[in-house]
Write a protein that binds this DNA or RNA. Structure first.
Lengths: 252, 252
DNA sequence: CGTTGTGTTGATATTAATCAACAAGTGTGG
DNA sequence: CCACACTTGTTGATTAATATCAACACAACG
């Protein structure tokens, strides 16, 4: 049930022609089809800035004036209810695009989990950009399509999976993330580093922090995972955990 | 919290130059920017077919060979877990695009709720189409962006709203649908016709049929809605219902 | 050191699920 | 036309999963 993953796209005016040491992808390029001579132009339209952990750079309801591309670090994306209930709709790492929506105001908030570097375009400039680089538009459509698939998978999780299945899905999903593209360092595919708190995990999975904690403890007691530190999980029995995640395994 | 709604786009080879009597939108046109002379070409790439209620025309896991555009009727889109648990991720009405994803297989299933007319392109032909009509690609990006916003709103509902809030959100959302674009006839903005069963509503809202039934009964008892027939709901106090839907109103 | 934020664990409450019965509507065939 | 099965929806009684309330452990930090 793993989904196709988009190659990360990075707009990073500060690191032109500095290819990623892991996957060889050339930073600064939105799309392979864009000629390097055009990158100059691309950079001239963008502004880069940094965000400290805990700082938000998009606020739900604010006028949607910019379009963002994450260059480094990770952010949590969330929506709030008036009484403070929160749903984290996703985590945006390197290469992630934010603020595509047609609406005149942002429909979610974004807050940095780690120090971030972000590339920003004003909406009008994005429009110019897309008109000039149809290949970029093609790529954005691909990206949006993939995000839609992920969103539907998350709806299945939130609407129909048990707490146990949600945690298993979360860990499997995190383990599958190509770690060389994340802002933080992760070990093997079996070692999952969690830059977010239990509270964030709970709000992402539609649970409480207590249920997250208890469920992780139980998975550990069953020998499926290890928890060497609060923000590190080692997957011991990947297949078994995946079976739980996909609902193939009956509940205990 | 109502979102921007995309103008319906209809690819309907059988009804060229037959504008929608309500909103004036010209059928057969994917995008206003496409010249009518191009429509001929567009139609030549598409195949049209019908689907009876209860029949599925997309099956999760099957090779994703086609791209669809709903011309008439409504479908439910859903994902299944191995033990039969189901999550309906949305309902696709007239103008809706299906099967955009990059993946080689469909990530969801689609089944007709009402008699449907559907326009179909093979993937390679869609590619040709998008290369020839960049305006269509632009439109698809808009559509996908809007769907992503809707998906995030649904995540908030599934992860953090109470049964009462979910039903209120569902009814308000249905009432706001531009009924002149749906395949079925709806009365005023306050009269909501539900082409789906209680089971479908439950699977869409992450609840059981019993909870859906009980919650609707309670809303009726409180004078917020009327239920003249099982698939008709009249909204009596729209503002109050909306207050519940958005979480502004405290629970009873 | 105290303070604060984060995470764990236990006891209890609550929401919604499950199990169960029945009512109403629909279609079929005799 | 009616008996029948079958589907859909409602309502009630009980259970179960997760939330809530509460206490405490631990680490980071001034």
């Amino acid at each position: 049930m793993s989904m196709a993953r988009a190659r990360p796209l990075v707009l990073d005016p500060g690191h032109r022609d500095d290819p990623c040491s892991h996957c060889g992808a050339r930073r600064y390029s939105v799309c392979n089809a864009i000629e390097s001579k055009d990158l100059e132009r691309l950079a001239s339209l963008a502004t880069q800035f940094t965000v400290e952990p805990g700082r938000s750079f998009i606020d739900e309801g604010d006028p949607a004036e910019h379009f963002f591309n994450v260059t480094a670090g990770t952010a949590k994306l969330f929506k709030l209810l008036p009484d403070g209930r929160r749903q984290i709709t996703g985590f945006a790492g390197t290469g992630h695009f934010l603020g595509l929506a047609v609406s005149s105001s942002y429909s979610f908030s974004a807050e940095a989990l780690e120090p971030m570097r972000i590339c920003r375009f004003s909406r009008p400039k994005l429009k110019v950009l897309l008109d000039d680089f149809p290949a970029m538009e093609k790529r954005l459509l691909e990206v949006a399509s993939n995000e839609l698939v992920a969103a539907q998978e998350q709806m299945l999780l939130l609407g129909r999976k048990t707490a146990r299945e949600r945690l298993a899905s979360f860990l499997i999903g995190r383990a599958d993330v190509p770690t060389h593209c994340l802002g933080h360092q992760a070990g093997t595919a079996e070692t999952v580093l969690l830059p977010m708190t239990r509270n964030d995990i709970a709000d992402y999975l539609g649970l409480t922090i207590e249920t997250v904690s208890r469920t992780l403890t139980k998975l550990k007691a069953e020998g499926l995972i290890e928890i060497p530190s609060a923000n590190t999980v080692v997957i011991r029995r990947h297949a078994a955990l995946e079976g739980i995640a996909t609902g193939e395994t009956e509940q205990h």
